[in-house]
């Protein structure tokens, strides 16, 4: 039964993909801002704790608005991804004995499992650095110390770096695909080419990774 209006949009494969693209755009903007904010870690403890104070006290209403927006975006992004994946699997019940991917990138092929990794990482990351629930020595609003102590645990830092690797792959495909999905990409003679996405996919995870790496290597303490 065909539904009308927004429900019909949500029912269609194009509509769900557009929802993924639009929420993806929000999430890409967020990771860029989050990464830029994190780099203040290298300005030292006072500056970084002041930044944390700004977000958690002075601008708390704005922070909550952002959290709710992000939660909504993530829920829609994952719901659409899950439903589309199920449809896509059902669309080819009998596979090929021999199939050679011609141009699809490793990034495109790891979107789903990379997404699952990030889905495991994000709640852990919030419980680790935001609520402190899973942090060995969490001190409220002492963000600098929390980061240093947090990343001194080897497996935590490695789990974080793994998430950044998948984030990079996810961004390499996603930050390019979202503009095509939303229908705002300019026609191109080489539509598979992705310069902006490559820059985002390298700079964002690299910026994030500087924190655990600098702690692990003992530069920041």
């Amino acid at each position: 039964m065909e539904r009308a209006g927004l429900l019909r949009f949500w029912d269609s494969s194009v509509g769900k993909k557009v929802v993924m693209g639009a929420t993806g755009l929000i999430l890409v903007a967020f990771v860029i801002l989050h990464m830029a904010g994190n780099l203040q870690f290298f300005s030292g403890s006072e500056r970084f704790n002041a930044y944390s104070h700004l977000l958690q006290v002075d601008l708390i209403e704005l922070t909550w608005l952002m959290r709710i927006t992000l939660l909504g975006a993530v829920v829609l992004h994952i719901t659409a991804a899950y439903q589309l994946t199920m449809r896509n699997r059902a669309a080819r019940p009998a596979g090929y004995v021999k199939r050679e991917p011609q141009v699809s990138t490793y990034a495109a092929r790891t979107m789903r499992w990379g997404g699952v990794y990030l889905l495991l990482f994000i709640p852990y990351h919030i419980l680790h650095f935001t609520t402190g629930t899973l942090h060995p020595a969490f001190v409220r609003r002492a963000a600098y110390g929390n980061v240093v102590i947090g990343f001194q645990v080897m497996w935590v830092a490695l789990f974080y770096l793994g998430a950044m690797a998948f984030l990079g792959l996810h961004l390499y495909h996603g930050a390019w695909a979202m503009f095509r999905t939303l229908g705002i990409a300019r026609p191109s003679n080489d539509p598979l080419h992705r310069r902006l996405a490559l820059a985002i996919a390298i700079i964002v995870p690299a910026g994030f990774s500087l924190l655990p790496l600098s702690v692990m290597l003992g530069f920041m303490h």
Binding site: L84, A91, Q102, A108
Partner: peptide, 20 residues
């Protein structure tokens, strides 16, 4: 697009294999 979905085709994930 509605008919395409009804026919049980999958959705686009922009792998680019079709163009190739």
């Amino acid at each position: 697009v509605h008919q395409m979905d009804l026919e049980t085709f999958g959705g686009c994930t922009l792998f680019g294999e079709c163009q190739e």
